Computed example of a mutant assay.
Amino acid sequence: MAHAAVYVGFPVPQLLGGASRIFRTHSALVLLRHSAFCYCTVNGTIKSKRKMDHLERTANNFRQEVISQAKVCGIAHESETVRRLRLAITNKDFTFKAGQWVDFFIPGVSVVGGFSICSSPGLLKREGILELAVKRAAHPPAHWIHTECALGSEVALRVGGDFFFDPQPGDSPVKLVLIAGGVGINPLFSILLHIADLHGYREGKGNGYEMGTVKLYYSVKNTGELLFKTNILGLMRAFPGKITCRFHLTQQRSQICEELQPHVTEGRISEKDLGTHVSKDTLWYICGPPPMIESIAKLLSSIGVPRNSVFFEKWW
């Protein structure tokens, strides 16, 4: 589940170089310290000529120098195909921003994994814990997590990525729309948890960054594939009107539980859903499979969303 951030079909002003055709773009809202890397083709569609491994695909992305040892201290099943790991981090200098990923080094496994962090920076600061949610796959690191990883297993981690939300106390308030497809929820859930921490800090201390409203649109085939649904419902209850979510189900066949029903829409995310959020102070974060990103990008362009307000993370 390696990741690379993209800006789809949009002009890119600065070529960074390299055979991978990766470009850097700059948001007008530089005070928010956002950045994204772009993979664009001539016709503006997302394509991959061959399958690259995580390190090759993200070679031009930012990486921290710190590599930390970590020990698996918790394992849970988020769904039938997704395993959630809690990792105790040993290096006190290890940090990350909400939305970033880790290089995942496994003793005895030559392939390096790339997994988006699904926990908040606040959890790492408070408890020294980082969480990952990994979908079952034949790729060696994911296969190891689902077949050999156990409590007490030791790995090493290095943070990377240019897709994140990291506002500072003096920055202007913004609203966020988060759009997730499948396991693309991982970095967006990290951002959502970070936003909850920002709200909590401001309510408790009376200062800190003033966060605008956040709307999450999360699309999956059915409720069995919804990750973190209990947590997301809890965040909506904890911050009513500040954090809201719509679960979009494209192939639901069974009855939807009563708790989820008020928040469910059957069918894909549409122009009607997103059009009500267009404003000059709204930022849009999207993560999911490449065809979904391309479709949502075109939709946002058609409804007048400024290009420098849209950020992408592509997963494979």
Rank of each mutant, 00 (worst) to 15 (best):
G234V: 06
Q252K: 04
V220E: 00
R246C: 15
L124P: 04
L193S: 09
G206A: 09
F163A: 06
C118N: 02
C287L: 06
L157C: 04
C40I: 14
C40K: 11
A156D: 07
K314P: 05
D162M: 08
I269D: 05
A297E: 07
R21I: 08
C38D: 08
L176A: 04
D103L: 00
F189Y: 13
E148C: 00
Q261W: 12
F23C: 08
G161M: 04
A150K: 09
E148G: 01
G182W: 02
P107Q: 04
S219V: 03
M292Y: 02
L85C: 06
P140W: 01
L55M: 12
A76Q: 13
C38P: 05
Q252Y: 02
S120V: 07
H277R: 09
F104K: 04
V305L: 08
I179F: 03
F115K: 03
I303T: 08
G224Q: 00
V264E: 07
I195W: 09
F163C: 08
C287R: 02
G184E: 01
G288V: 00
L198I: 07
Y7N: 13
A297D: 07
L227T: 00
S116G: 08
L32S: 09
A59V: 12
D197G: 03
S295I: 02
V30G: 14
T45L: 11
G17Q: 05
G122R: 11
L132D: 03
P290L: 12
D197N: 05
N308H: 13
L188Y: 04
R83I: 10
R21N: 15
K47N: 13
I106L: 01
I286P: 00
G18R: 08
H139C: 10
F163R: 04
S309W: 09
G152D: 03
F165C: 06
F164C: 11
G304M: 06
I75N: 02
Y201W: 13
L216N: 03
G206Y: 07
T265N: 14
S279F: 07
Q261K: 15
A238N: 11
V177R: 01
N231A: 15
F96I: 13
N61A: 14
P262C: 10
K215T: 15
A297S: 14
K51A: 12
T147Q: 01
I185S: 02
S254L: 07
A238G: 08
A180S: 07
V109G: 01
T90A: 14
H26T: 15
F23Y: 12
H54Q: 10
D166V: 11
G304H: 06
G114F: 04
G206C: 06
G44C: 07
R307A: 15
V111D: 09
I67V: 15
H3A: 06
R307Y: 11
C257A: 14
K49C: 08
V8H: 01
S20H: 12
L198E: 06
I67R: 13
T95A: 11
G160A: 14
K175S: 14
